[in-house]
């Protein structure tokens, strides 16, 4: 019971510590992100009308990190008047694609079919992505709404994956590896990965090797991107709370170890004392 109470106190303090900077922002500095900068520059330098594919592997389980960055990159594409194709290999992805479509139509005057298309969900993960890369026109005949893709002017300009200027993915899984394997290695189409912070230590290697032209990493990467396009949003708002959360968990680790070492020392002293008494 004592253990349970201590756990609850730890959790309540965590909630309050993270909540306070959301209510009262601290406006802490964000710091650089060279890989995020590379992603921004690449997209920024694409000419108007370029076709990009956004692979939305976003789901409720990871939307806290991936949705802000997908939104920021989509806005950037729209600002630069690029044409966007959205694809997904997770069942929830099309829900987020529809949100981007709504934003594109309301805020940027995009016309569905001409400037933007949503491809249907495809099961199979890596194999489905490989299938798209190998023959995109064979892999997709209809859009998400069941309309033949040949009805859309945008699709007329997509003969193969090589007609795509950049493919970006927003993933909590291995999509950045799949892109490196099946898109970059086979067809040399530039790829950008937007991934959860947890994948950064792995994805950074692919960026350094040149297999990814840019990397947007977790909430920090999303916040960095939001600031680059001058549209601070969901991720920027979260960064102060992230700071305090990190600090709190670090203090818990240090505190836990101090208690551990003290207990260990007391235990040793106790044993020595017991021996002396004997």
């Amino acid at each position: 019971m004592q253990q349970l109470k201590q756990t609850h106190i730890i959790w309540i303090v965590l909630t309050v510590a993270v909540l306070l900077p959301l209510i009262f922002p601290l406006k802490l500095p964000l710091g650089p992100s060279p890989e995020g900068e590379a992603a921004y520059s690449f997209i920024d330098n694409l000419p108007q009308g370029s076709i990009s594919i956004m692979v939305l592997e976003t789901a409720p389980s990871n939307e806290g990190e991936l949705w802000p960055m997908a939104l920021a990159v989509a806005r950037h594409h729209m600002e630069k008047q690029h044409r966007i194709i959205m694809a997904t290999f997770v069942p929830d992805g099309t829900m987020y694609a529809e949100k981007i479509r709504a934003l594109a139509e309301s805020d940027y005057g995009y016309v569905y079919g001409k400037d933007l298309v949503i491809l249907p969900y495809r099961a199979g993960g890596e194999t489905a992505l490989a299938s798209m890369a190998d023959n995109i026109r064979a892999a997709y005949q209809q859009d998400h709404y069941g309309t033949p893709l040949t009805d859309y002017p945008l699709w007329a300009d997509v003969k193969s994956i090589k007609d795509i200027s950049v493919i970006s993915c927003y993933t909590a899984g291995d999509d950045h590896l799949w892109l490196a394997r099946h898109v970059w290695a086979k067809y040399q189409v530039p790829c950008i990965s937007g991934n959860i912070a947890l994948s950064t230590p792995e994805a950074i290697v692919y960026f350094k090797n040149g297999q990814l032209v840019g990397l947007i990493s977790g909430v920090k990467g999303a916040a960095f991107y939001e600031q680059k396009i001058n549209m601070p949003g969901l991720a920027t708002q979260s960064m102060d709370a992230q700071s305090i959360g990190h600090l709190y968990l670090l203090l818990l680790m240090i505190g836990g170890n101090i208690v551990y070492w003290k207990q260990k020392k007391d235990g040793k002293n106790g044993k020595q004392g017991a021996k002396k008494n004997v």
Binding site: L19, I23, N62, V219, K220, Q237, A241
Partner: peptide
């Protein structure tokens, strides 16, 4: 980075409950 990712899941829920629902957090 794992801790960062896990916080990244929790903060949006707080923003929803204390922002969208209770209106304590200013909207973006």
């Amino acid at each position: 980075t794992t801790i960062m990712a896990r916080l990244g899941l929790f903060i949006p829920r707080l923003k929803f409950l204390f922002g969208d629902w209770i209106h304590l957090i200013p909207p973006v």
